Simulated assay, not measured.
Amino acid sequence: MKDLRDIIGKKDYFVLTSNGECHFEMSGFDPEKMDEIEGNWLTMQCRAACHDTLYPVLEKAEDMHKAEKDGLVPGDLTPKCPKCGSPMDIHMMGAADRYVSDDGDQRLGAFLEKYHGKRLVILELGIGWRNQLIKGPLMRLTAAEPKASYITINLGEVYITENIKNKSYGIDGKIADVLREIKKAM
């Protein structure tokens, strides 16, 4: 992640990720320039869906960890919705009955609008051909944007559709190794 951050430098960027572990944010990427499309483990939402506000998890989790005895946490530390008192769920698609969408898709839309028709590098890291949640839209974006270049790095599985091969680069390798080499070459 640090090598990727260094490669990007002061260039504008936007991160679209299906990983919910907050690695990008913890590595210094601006959360306002990200869309964690399936949520993340560091926010929670009301289980009863009385409203769409997301709340931080970390402080509550630390409090529960400190109070844990023999694998049990006091019930009064269980996170409750500040509006209706219902339990809170982790903000991850599939972890809640109703997933609360944040404004990441709007931020992505604004970024793409800003760079429409301009040079755009689409860097895809570690996404196999089966993951069409991210890969499909990125390849369609590459096809639609005349000045877009598509770079995919994935160990053992580099997939690029025929319609964008002339403006794409596929690198078969470990992401960390490839990024380290790119950083060295800069």
Rank of each mutant, 00 (worst) to 15 (best):
I122N: 12
S27P: 05
D52W: 00
G28I: 07
G156F: 09
A49N: 14
D105Q: 13
I151E: 00
E113G: 13
F24I: 03
K66C: 01
M88I: 05
A95L: 10
A148W: 02
D97K: 03
F29E: 00
G9F: 08
P74W: 03
Q132M: 08
P87F: 13
P146D: 05
V178E: 01
V158D: 02
T17I: 03
D103S: 14
L72I: 08
N131T: 09
E21A: 12
G9W: 06
A110H: 14
Q132L: 11
E62K: 10
W129N: 08
T43Q: 08
L77K: 09
Q106F: 05
D103C: 09
V73W: 03
K33A: 12
S27A: 15
M26K: 15
E124I: 03
G75K: 07
G71L: 07
M26G: 06
D177K: 07
C46W: 01
G75S: 13
M34G: 08
L125Y: 07
R130L: 06
T53D: 15
D103L: 13
K167S: 04
E32A: 13
W129K: 08
V57Y: 01
D103H: 10
G117T: 11
G136W: 10
S18L: 08
S101K: 14
G117Y: 06
A67I: 05
R140Y: 12
K118N: 10
G170H: 01
L16F: 07
L42D: 02
N131V: 12
